[in-house]
Design a protein around this nucleic acid. Sequence first.
DNA 1: ATGTGC
Length: 383
Amino acid sequence: MDTNVQTITEQVSLIASEQTWIEGAAIQQLKKTAELDGMVRVAGMPDLHPGRGYPIGAAFYTRDKIYPALVGNDIGCGMSLWQSSLKVSKINLDKFAKKFARVEAPLDDSWCELVAERKKEKNITNHSFDLSLGTIGGGNHFTEFQAIDQVYDTDALSALGLDKKQLQLLVHSGSRGLGQSILVEHIRQFNHTGLNAGSENAQRYLQQHDEAVRWAELNREFIARRFLEAGKADGQMILDINHNLVTAKTLDNQNGYLHRKGATPSDAGYVVIPGSRGDYTYLVRPLPSDKSLYSLAHGAGRKWRRGECQGRLSHKYKKDDLYQTPLGSRVICGNKELLYDEAPQAYKKCQSVVSDMADAGLVEVIARLRPVLTFKTHGDCAG
DNA sequence: ATGTGC
């Protein structure tokens, strides 16, 4: 018996302990998705929650079919961890928080040369969404400064070049309007029907998809660079991992396609599993395994649906109560909806999600990071 | 999720 690997049906498995709460609707979506033509196996992660038709926090393995709708609109969305040159001990939160007034506008002319150079290096030929490059976007996207709070594997931390004294920067964003435009065009032409692998249409989608993945990577890079510049710091990228994408993958000596929707690859080196803005982020070493379709949770996972959070929180918490967290961190969020929808209370405890995976033999925890400053948006009251 | 809907 595999610990924390639940068998829902012959095709569908769920990585979670019996104690981990997962919404029934998400399990139903998982089972429904397993019925798609060409679907071989489906694996839910411990952060599984309902999405629009398809669940979030899951990996889907197909043979002969590609489903753009399973990847969704935010193609290439992921997490990027940078180490800044700033010392945690030197940070004055009041002063520091004021430095990020101009990080939401399109990148100004001073970035023009570097943008052109990096786009060329990453073979990005699409220019329609240049104004969004270097911007976080909405929803659950964020930029967060963090401090390494606990170290469980000193050697691994050093091997990654991480120094406990330095302030870290975590960026969660994706391909913005570019990924959206690719999905919208696909749905217009084919609705939710899968594409035949190897067909001209599939090849065209994959080509657009791959460019959106590279665009999303570059977006996170420029978000990190502009936040570092605003904070008067340097920095270097430690890791970058995509959790919304489809890739070719050989399983059981057969070729197929692994779709990940809010599922972090476990076959691409070290990754971070971020908690909500009031919770810890975990740096882990994935142990690649077929039982989770080479995937992991991409975060703590929603407990409450978007839109229902304000109603559940507003009687108990005033807006001002949500600008700081029990871990001592600050939140910059000028948008009322996002303030409530992304509140820590709306998410599960990240520790439980990570221990579900650790007990399943899918990860080893390297370090724990605590939030220092979470940036969402200045919203209407910018400045 | 969305150079975001009425």
